[in-house]
């Protein structure tokens, strides 16, 4: 597994694309709640998929702070590096 943020980002965008209706355009700049149309439960479920994929646990307070897909990628990278 890689810790490079662009690889993490690609994987997360792939996972996200699978979760959303086919053909939905996704990018790192998109805001998770507003732009992706996920409700609070949907976001939590999506975060769990990412946790499983990277074998990390994203603490609840950190999830609340995530605004964009890029924030999520950074959080995943930091957790993979053991920063938290």
């Amino acid at each position: 597994m890689t810790n490079k943020v662009e690889d993490i980002e690609r994987e997360i965008l792939d996972l996200l694309a699978k979760q959303l209706p086919e053909g939905t355009q996704v990018s790192a700049e998109m805001r998770i709640a507003r732009d992706l149309g996920l409700d609070s439960v949907g976001i939590m479920d999506f975060v769990m998929d990412i946790e499983d994929r990277f074998d990390i646990s994203i603490p609840l307070d950190l999830i609340a702070e995530l605004e964009t897909v890029a924030d999520l990628c950074t959080a995943a990278r930091d957790l993979l590096k053991g920063a938290r």
Partner: peptide, 25 residues
């Protein structure tokens, strides 16, 4: 969880194996 100061981790609903994975992390 919001009121307290501990780090909070959610495990998949009714999934003891997932709980174990998260504890091991």
């Amino acid at each position: 969880c919001k009121l307290g100061t501990a780090e909070v981790i959610r495990f998949r609903h009714n999934d003891a194996e997932d709980l174990a994975r998260r504890l091991r992390r």
